[in-house]
Each structure stands twice: as structure tokens, then as C-alpha cells.
Write a protein that binds this DNA or RNA. Structure first.
Length: 491
RNA sequence: GGUCCCUUCGUCUAACGGUUAGGACACCAGGUUUUCAUCCUGGUAACAGGGGUCCGACUCCCCUAGGGACUACCA
């Protein structure tokens, strides 16, 4: 058993604006593993590419993850003993470690210009060779280096790769992976502006922050051997690595904006619940032993095992997300659901002049009737519009049930109105309305549909809606009668 | 092009080398029902292909094919 106190995972996003749904999945697995192993979760901001940085990104990142239910034990916002947690605030640390590698002969100064690199690359490409740095500056003499630095020539620091041999790295899911040293490039560790690359900063930070498990996307697999070599160059023990299989869009490519929403914020705005997002994302790459796929975060943590994770890429199937979302909506308490629906009902609230229909009680009544139909909270607006408008707009022929004539429809509505009229206000409940109407239908030897269909359409103006008895109760006696009578006039 | 990863129903996935290849979403059918939805019951549907190893292969090995990632002074 590992020492639980030494379990430390990190989520290390770049502050580029919004949280990608794929990153959410990574953060989720980080969180789950940290909790499962009784460890800590650290937020580290990888802002070494200043060109892509977006202001306020860190705050929104923390906010949306908090909404999901993922909190951090350490981070730029939470503090901790391993800070700073923002990479551009650690530049002196990286500089010190880069110097150490230079002194050890595991890294070197490179003065090549962007133009020269470009030339080399072009030549390699026309000769059908793999484009790679030609190691031009790898063996400069001390004097040459000193002279160039004295002339304040711009330089980068590159990692000195072994020229031959095999590098074997270990992924917790895939096992050992073998790379040929000859395939590895002397990549840049410190850029000419003094800022480290991801490759360097993440290794230094993971070590210094005592990260025990690096959970990251599969796209990092190709640079994995470079990372391990870096650990070896420093003489550090590398953490465990878990490379998550990628999430793909329906076409099989990388999940991108063009095929739909990728920002978690977008899903939130559309009315997806954290529970659904969590449940859906975790099933992309992990499966519970007992096949029970409906799981809360706590249950997931309980059942989770790293070894049960898969290695093949998963296509993002929005229909399954919708299923989970509908499921969790149906299982919400009415109070909670009504509260969550409220922001989505603003448009409807503007449509009514009746104060009663602005109340929380009315909203609850309305939401209750649509709860089982909702797949996303945003749908509540369209679904319940008829409750709020003062006058319904609909095609009168909709009132006709099967082969009934307009006259028959009118007659049935008249009878419905008469029955409703006789129900006292204080008995105006769905049950008593239903009893009264059904008693009448039985007495008339009629069919349910020939009464209930026109009644429902008159009350809602739609061909699909909740039960007319429920709608009538929520609408109230006065408005229900008004709508039924309006129906009679229209047909 | 090169390197690496991946390959079970349409999709997400399960299956100590021995199962009628299981579950979930979606879909279809039936039931409940005034409509839609919910709910219940049932159904269609998969081991990429080819070689081995083995008494026996979805499972192990090799090859082929397909998909993906990477190949920046981006992460």
C-alpha cells in the first residue's frame, strides 16, 4: 500500500479562456484518483505560452470546476506549501534547474536563429527526412558560448538527448513503451524569452510539488521519453504516469468547436447538470465492475480502480449525455429543480400579466408537470410557455380528435365547460377534476379521447402536453374555463 | 513520411483461454395511457482481416488494414 500522505495529483490547464469538456474529463479523473487514494489535488496554471493567455481564465476555470464539484487542496487561489502555483511566477526556479542541467552536460545553449531552423527544416523535408533540429550548437566550445553570450546573442537551452539506445517508459495503463533514442529531438527547455517550455516546466514542477501521479491526455505519449530522460538527468524519481485515451467527436477527429459545444460553460448554459456531466464523462474510459452505470461522484470514487480504465479513444455521444441529464432531472427534488429552472423561465415570466404566475409556487407547479419530459433545463422555456401567455395561439383544427366533426368537438368542449363550471373553487384539484370529467364521460357513454383531446388542446394549444387535469389545476378554474370556452369559439 | 497509441453491437463498454459474447444509450415492437413523456416487458445489432501458439483464443504472439496523436522557442 502506498503511503496515503504522499499521494498528490495535479490538474494543470493553460489559461486559454474556457474549460474544454475533454479537460474536464482529465480533471475529473485527477480528482477521483486523488480522492480514491486519499491524496491531494493541486491546481497548477501552465501559462508559459503568453500569446494564448486570456485574462480572467483562471477565475472562470476555478468557478466552473467548483460548479461541477471539483475542488483543489492547493493552487493559486487556495494557497499551499508548494507555491507559487502559476508557472510564470516560477521563472527563477526553472532558470536554476536549467543551469544545473547545463553544468551536468545534459543541456546546452543554442544560438540558432529562427531563419536557420526554418532552412534546416525545409531542407530535411525536401529530402524526405524527419524534420528535427540538427544539433548545430550541441558541441560549441566554452569560449564560443561565452563570446556569444557576451555579445548578447539570443539563445535557447536545449535538452541533450542520448545519441543511441532505447528508452523504456512505463504507463500505468499501457505498460512499458519502447522508444528509440535516435527518434528524439534535442528539444527546447528554455525559450529565448527566458520562459520554459511545457516539457521542462511540467517536469520541474511535478518533481518540486511532489506529484505522485501524472494523469494527462494521450497526446503527451510521444514526449513521454523526453520527460523521463529529464528526470534521469536530474537524478529524480519520476511519478507514476496515466495517459488518458482521447475523446473524439462523431467524425472520429479531435473534439473541437466546429462539431458542437466543447466548453463546459456552454453545457451549463444549456441546462446540463453536474451529475450528468460527471457520470457521462467518467464512463468515457472507465467502467464499473458491476455494470451499474448510474453513479454519483461518491459512488464512482468508491468503485474506481485505475486498472479498470480503458486505453482506446471514445467518441463523444451527446445522446447518452442527454439520457443521463434527463435521468438526473427526473430524480431532482421539485424545490431544487424549480430553482434551477428559474433562470431559464425569464422569457416566459415576461409574457404574463398575472402576478400569481410570477410566484415560486406557480413555477414549482409548472416545473413539476414537465419534469419527466425535460432533457435539458433550457427546454423548460418552450415546454411551459402556454402556462404563461395570456392568450394561446394555435391552429383550431388541432382541437379535432380523430374523425370528429367541428360541431362534435364544440359540443364536447361545451360539456367539459359545464362540468368544470360545477366544480367549486375549493375542490379544484386534478383528482376531483379528473373524477368529475370521467364521471360525465361514463354517464354519456363517451370515449376518453373525444373529450380529453379537445380539452387538452384548448388548455395548452399543443398536441403534446401534460394531462389536462394537471394543467387545469395549475391554470386555475377561471383561466381553465376561459380557455375551454375560447376553444369552442375557435372551432 | 517517421514515431507512438488504439481496434468487441451505430455509440460507451464487459467478458482469470472454456459464456447462447453481458450491460447501458440509441433504435424497433408490445404494455400502461386522452397526447407527448415517464415507467414496465421483449427484440434487432459486435469480437477489423489473415496467420500462428494451444485440447480450446474476443482474450497470448506476428503480419496486414483502419483510426488517432505527435512530429514548434503551443500546451
Amino acid at each position: 500500500m502506498p503511503d496515503k500522505n504522499n499521494i498528490r495529483l495535479r490538474f494543470a490547464p493553460s489559461p486559454t479562456g474556457f474549460l474544454h469538456i475533454g479537460s474536464l474529463r482529465t480533471a475529473l479523473f485527477d480528482y477521483i484518483i486523488a480522492k480514491k487514494l486519499g491524496g491531494k489535488l493541486i491546481l497548477r496554471i501552465e501559462d508559459t505560452d503568453q500569446k494564448r493567455e486570456v485574462a480572467g481564465a483562471v477565475e472562470s476555470l476555478v468557478k466552473i470546476l467548483d460548479w461541477i464539484g471539483i475542488g483543489f487542496d492547493e493552487g493559486p487561489h487556495a494557497g499551499g506549501d508548494y507555491g507559487p502555483y502559476t508557472q510564470t511566477e516560477r521563472l527563477d526556479i526553472y532558470k536554476k534547474h536549467a543551469d544545473e542541467l547545463i553544468n551536468k552536460g545534459r543541456a546546452y545553449y543554442c544560438f540558432c536563429s529562427a531563419e536557420r531552423l526554418e532552412e534546416v527544416r525545409n531542407k530535411q523535408q525536401t529530402e524526405k527526412q524527419a524534420p528535427r533540429y540538427d544539433r548545430h550548437c550541441r558541441d560549441l566550445s566554452e569560449d564560443e558560448i561565452k563570446k556569444k553570450i557576451a555579445c548578447s546573442e539570443k539563445y535557447v537551452i536545449r535538452q541533450k538527448m542520448p545519441l543511441e539506445g532505447k528508452i523504456i517508459v512505463h504507463d500505468e495503463l499501457r505498460g512499458d513503451i519502447e522508444f528509440n533514442a535516435t527518434e528524439l529531438e534535442d528539444h527546447v527547455l528554455i525559450k529565448s524569452n527566458g520562459i520554459p517550455t511545457y516539457q521542462f516546466a511540467s517536469v520541474v514542477d511535478d518533481h518540486l510539488m511532489e506529484i505522485s501521479h501524472v494523469v494527462r491526455g494521450e497526446e503527451w505519449l510521444p514526449s513521454f521519453p523526453k520527460n523521463i530522460l529529464l528526470y534521469q538527468a536530474f537524478g529524480w524519481e519520476p511519478p507514476k504516469f496515466v495517459h488518458l485515451a482521447l475523446t473524439l467527436n462523431k467524425g472520429g477527429g479531435k473534439l473541437s468547436k466546429r462539431q458542437g459545444d466543447v466548453a463546459v460553460e456552454d453545457y451549463r448554459a444549456k441546462g446540463y447538470l453536474p451529475e450528468a456531466l460527471i457520470n457521462f464523462c467518467v464512463l468515457q474510459g472507465w467502467h464499473p465492475k458491476d455494470d451499474n452505470e448510474i453513479l454519483t461522484l461518491d459512488e464512482i470514487i468508491k468503485k474506481f480502480e485505475i486498472k479498470d480504465m480503458g486505453t482506446s479513444p471514445a467518441i463523444f455521444d451527446i445522446e447518452k449525455l442527454d439520457f443521463f441529464n434527463g435521468y438526473y432531472i427526473r430524480h431532482k427534488s421539485l424545490d431544487e429543480l424549480a430553482e434551477m429552472c428559474r433562470p431559464h423561465l425569464e422569457e416566459n415570466l415576461k409574457k404574463t400579466t398575472d402576478d400569481r404566475r410570477q410566484t415560486t409556487d406557480f413555477i414549482k407547479d409548472v416545473v413539476k408537470l414537465e419534469q419527466e419530459r425535460l432533457k435539458k433545463l433550457s427546454e423548460i422555456s418552450e415546454l411551459t410557455e402556454f402556462f404563461f401567455v395570456d392568450k394561446l395561439e394555435y391552429d383550431p383544427t388541432l382541437l379535432i380528435w380523430k374523425k370528429m366533426s367541428a360541431e362534435e368537438v364544440k359540443e364536447k368542449l361545451k360539456e367539459v365547460a359545464d362540468v368544470l363550471e360545477r366544480i367549486p373553487e375549493e375542490f379544484w384539484t386534478n383528482d376531483s377534476i379528473e373524477e368529475a370529467i370521467k364521471t360525465h364521460i361514463a354517464a354519456k357513454n363517451g370515449q376518453m379521447g373525444e373529450y380529453l383531446w379537445p380539452m387538452r388542446v384548448a388548455l395548452t394549444g399543443r398536441k403534446a402536453s401534460p394531462s389536462p387535469f394537471d394543467v387545469a389545476e395549475v391554470l386555475g378554474k377561471e383561466d381553465s374555463l376561459k380557455r375551454v370556452k375560447e376553444g369552442m369559439e375557435r372551432i
